[in-house]
Simulated scan of single mutants.
Amino acid sequence: MLTAAQIRAARALLGWSQPALAAAAKLSLPTIVRMESQQGPGRSAAANVEAVQRALEDAGVCFIAPEGSGGGGPGVRLKHG
């Protein structure tokens, strides 16, 4: 499951604004704002979380799961071009 921090970090790596992510994921801006808030994506519909993840991955983001981070927790990075 994605975290709010991962979504914010992924956007930062891409230089995307919240409206840009909303457009790429075909979701409303309030949905993106809510997913990045303290409530996090866990309160969103699974299809919305998948849409955000897919949009970010299509743009070149790799999500790092907590168990794959060497003890550093969940994270993000850009794919090698």
Rank of each mutant, 00 (worst) to 15 (best):
I32T: 15
T31L: 12
K79C: 14
R43Y: 04
A25G: 11
V61R: 05
F63C: 08
M35H: 15
L56N: 00
G60N: 04
G70P: 09
P19N: 07
G40H: 11
R54E: 11
N48V: 01
I32C: 15
A45T: 08
G60T: 05
L21N: 02
G60A: 03
T3V: 06
G40Q: 11
R8Q: 08
A4R: 01
L27V: 10
S44A: 14
R43Q: 08
T3S: 10
Q53K: 15
L56Q: 00
E67Q: 07
S69C: 06
V49P: 04
G42L: 10
L2A: 07
A51P: 05
L2S: 04
S69Y: 04
A65L: 14
P41A: 07
W16H: 03
Q6P: 02
Q39C: 13
M1Y: 06
I64W: 08
R54D: 11
P30K: 09
G40D: 09
A24P: 12
V76T: 12
L56D: 00
G72W: 13
P66K: 02
T3G: 08
A55D: 00
L29T: 10
A51H: 01
F63G: 10
A5P: 05
G75R: 05
R11H: 04
G70S: 04
S37M: 10
I64M: 08
L21S: 01
A65V: 09
P66H: 03
L14G: 03
A22N: 05
Q53T: 14
L78G: 06
L2H: 05
A51M: 01
T3A: 03
G60D: 02
P19H: 06
T31R: 09
C62L: 09
S69L: 03
E50L: 12
P74M: 14
